[in-house]
Write a protein that binds this DNA or RNA. Structure first.
Lengths: 128, 128
DNA sequence: GGAAATTCTTACGTAAAAGTCAATTGACCG
DNA sequence: CGGTCAATTGACTTTTACGTAAGAATTTCC
């Protein structure tokens, strides 16, 4: 595993722009180190970018993604804080399960659509 | 099943604004009938709204939702068109399967977070 | 060592998806 | 018939998530 990635290496790997990565840094989602003014992305930063893009695909806003990322960085914290985190984790899981159900429902309806199409095609073949 | 719903009935049921429903109409996602200038939503319109909101939860844009909705309205079409639809259905399914995988991955990471928290809580209890 | 490429900051622009506000217009109720 | 409540259209505003452009500083390559 490489020690550092340049910004354009990551933009190419993930198909995003430099503007986007800098924006994510402004938003506090990633914090690459610097050599002079130039950003150096560590493997951990790269993994964060993956998680961010995964969140985006699922329709989470930057603010929501920031919350999720903060969960990943579980701080040593005291008991009350730990329980708060556990609660938030459960909330996010509920959201994700809802999305998963939405997906299953949509997939089922698309199956229906395809079946209808296939049947009509069969009818067309019989009629010809 | 009721014949018609008013706009505010639907806004209350789904927790959205009248502006939103009118916006969806402008965008061609729904087409409620009119009594004078007032919109009357039929059960079919209501179901469409459900599908739209499901799409939104999954992070689809209005344009993408419009595409999906058009698939549901499978037209009688000729063979070539039917095959085009089948192809598009398969594309959407691929997208949905990607999202489902993203969800599974995120859920797994959240499980990890929770486990870490629970373990630390246990340590705290031992130390006390 | 000079040109070309990469990176940086700063700032303004924009598309999508509504929110908000204003001015009407019916529709119903006592 | 007067009032009030719900609905409509139209215009302007806002927020999010970047795009784009300008100009300076580095770095890299021949």
């Amino acid at each position: 595993m490489r020690e550092f990635y340049t910004i354009t290496e990551l933009t190419r790997e993930f198909g995003i722009s430099t503007r986007t990565l800098r924006f994510y840094e402004d938003e506090g989602l990633i914090a690459p180190v610097r050599r002079g003014r130039t950003r150096l992305f560590r493997p951990g930063d790269r993994h964060l970018v993956k998680q961010i893009l995964r969140g985006k695909r699922l329709g989470f806003s930057i603010a929501e993604i920031r919350e999720i990322i903060q969960m990943y960085k579980t701080p040593p914290g005291e008991a009350g804080q730990l329980r708060t985190i556990i609660d938030r984790v459960e909330e996010k899981r509920a959201e994700l399960r809802q999305k998963r159900k939405d997906i299953e429902d949509t997939l089922a309806e698309l199956d229906q659509v395809e079946e209808t199409c296939v049947n009509r095609l069969a009818e067309l073949r019989v009629a010809s």
